[in-house]
Design a protein around this nucleic acid. Structure first.
Lengths: 115, 115
DNA sequence: GACACGCATCCGCCTATGCGGATAAACAAT
DNA sequence: ATTGTTTATCCGCATAGGCGGATGCGTGTC
């Protein structure tokens, strides 16, 4: 039961929902998440760690860069919830706004950002 | 966005998931919930109020008795989540145990109980 | 109005977790 | 080893909300 409440608790914070909303279309580096969310690095990092510990995400380091994506682990509840999130998160204005910001960042893409 | 995080936060506590699990088959009076959950009245009442405020439940008073059921209000996210909960909550041992307790209570059903 | 019952809320105590700047740790190049 | 970059974690502060017994509020009967 503790695993389950942890799954839902992870979804009970705006920043974390926004992160999941950004990762729906595939993995992203922290530097992109920071730009899209327009939040300080420590805030983003803290929430990513929470989502990993709750079982939603997994991270992969590539050099200095850290990428996050939805966890490959799968159980019935998480799979069902993920299906719901995949459609419903995109209906949230804050999430669509983040996607616009991400697109803009990709277009202007500083050379200092990850490959 | 605040409504959405509130929905998930409501699901992030064991007692509240257990309450929702008990209400899946239909409305129940608080006295039944207390018996099935085997928890003090104040604890049950507090969580019921939280679930009402989060948008999951609605209550109806009948004399001194208070009945709760899933809210008639419907939006996309809540409807999808409810569909998930309807199947997945019954897979949780604590929830099935509550149902057994409820059945036992119904069988022995003190005359002082509602209905 | 008095009394009884069911249930919402208060209360004191405690734990969990939000925030962002500072710092530590990990990685890479020289 | 030094320097630079990215990111995880610490820190102090603040808010939210868990617990259950006590109390207040609402309903019903006499």
């Amino acid at each position: 039961m503790h695993d389950i409440t942890k799954l839902f608790k992870a979804l009970s914070e705006e920043v974390r929902l926004r992160i999941l909303g950004l990762l729906i279309h595939g993995e992203l580096c922290v530097c992109y998440l920071m730009a899209a969310l327009n939040l300080p690095q420590s805030t983003v990092s803290r929430h990513l760690t929470y989502l990993v510990n709750a079982g939603w995400l997994e991270g992969e380091r590539r050099g200095v860069w850290m990428y996050y994506r939805f966890s490959g682990k799968s159980d019935n509840l998480r799979r069902d919830l993920l299906a719901v999130l995949t459609t419903r998160l995109m209906e949230i204005p804050e999430v669509t706004r983040d996607h616009e910001r991400l697109k803009e960042y990709l277009r202007t893409k500083p050379t200092s950002a990850c490959g």
